[in-house]
Simulated scan of single mutants.
Amino acid sequence: MRADASIAASRRFFVVAFALACALAGVARARAYGYDPCASSGERGIEIAGAVTIGLAFWPGGALERWDGYHPCAQRAQLAALGVGTTSFVINSAELTALRGTRADEDGLYATNASATMMSVVAYTATRVSAPRAVRLEAAEPTNANGRSGRVNALTLLVTLDGGDVKYLRWHDGGCGACGGVGDARCLSVGDGDVACSASLAGCDGTCSGSACDVDLATADALRCQLTVTVATSGTDKNDEVFVLGSQLERLSMYASSGAYASASAQSTAAVTGVTGFLG
């Protein structure tokens, strides 16, 4: 019965952030502000359908190699001085979850570093941290080998638990099937050989015109100008029951999974506050 319930739950997408619209706003706000990704309780003793706390840390101007040796909890002060911004989310371990802040907050964070030509992100819990991924690239970025630029639409994070404790945070390569494949100009290299679809900088900034614009800022298409991180769990809970979401996600085709994430994001009515807090 537990496995059947988990499989059914995996077909639903939920957007979790600091606040939800309408009557749920107070409950969601209390959950978000009551959980700290640097608290060990958010990554240990998790059971199926239990809460897991995930943090995302964004570094404007932070090339991928600059993250080496940094953890957003252990090096809180150092990263604050470097301009890193964070946001946190509480997810249900039995649900496929889309995490998203606001475009205004991401833009505002990026603007704090006038010399930035890229922005990178890591996911973290109290003691675990993912590899970094590029989420915004300009052609002038020195580490940008092929000169492509854009804003990454979506990344996929797999949270692996062992006996209910978070063991790994790793990115799943979603590919570029949703935007024409690796040869398309919208396909960006985001780190460790992974690629992801992006929206053009001109399209998101509104500095293009006519057919040159690949983003309709007047519609839900504008959501492609900000990052959505889709999270799934794998491994075992504190009762040694198996999380099925991660294995299901990895079996999806690249195109099908990317399309599902985009659809879930576009249909969301969640009111979010996003990357509003700096570490400190």
Results as ranks from 00 to 15, higher is better:
254 M>F: 10
148 R>W: 07
229 V>E: 04
42 G>E: 04
24 L>A: 13
198 S>L: 03
274 G>Q: 04
66 R>D: 12
81 A>P: 05
7 I>T: 12
4 D>K: 11
199 A>V: 04
204 C>S: 05
146 N>T: 15
217 L>F: 09
10 S>E: 01
171 W>T: 02
37 P>K: 01
243 F>H: 02
143 T>H: 06
122 V>G: 04
53 T>S: 14
130 S>Q: 04
194 D>F: 08
187 C>G: 09
89 F>Y: 15
18 F>D: 09
199 A>D: 11
239 N>D: 14
175 G>R: 04
177 G>A: 05
117 T>Q: 12
185 A>T: 07
224 R>E: 06
70 Y>F: 15
187 C>D: 11
203 G>W: 05
164 G>Y: 04
189 S>N: 07
3 A>Q: 12
120 S>A: 11
124 Y>N: 06
7 I>A: 13
116 A>C: 07
263 S>L: 13
129 V>M: 05
88 S>E: 05
39 A>V: 12
181 G>E: 03
224 R>G: 06
260 A>D: 08
246 G>N: 07
265 S>F: 01
121 V>M: 11
140 A>Q: 15
211 S>P: 01
148 R>L: 14
36 D>N: 15
65 E>A: 15
214 D>V: 12
158 L>K: 15
272 V>N: 12
79 L>V: 08
144 N>S: 14
147 G>M: 01
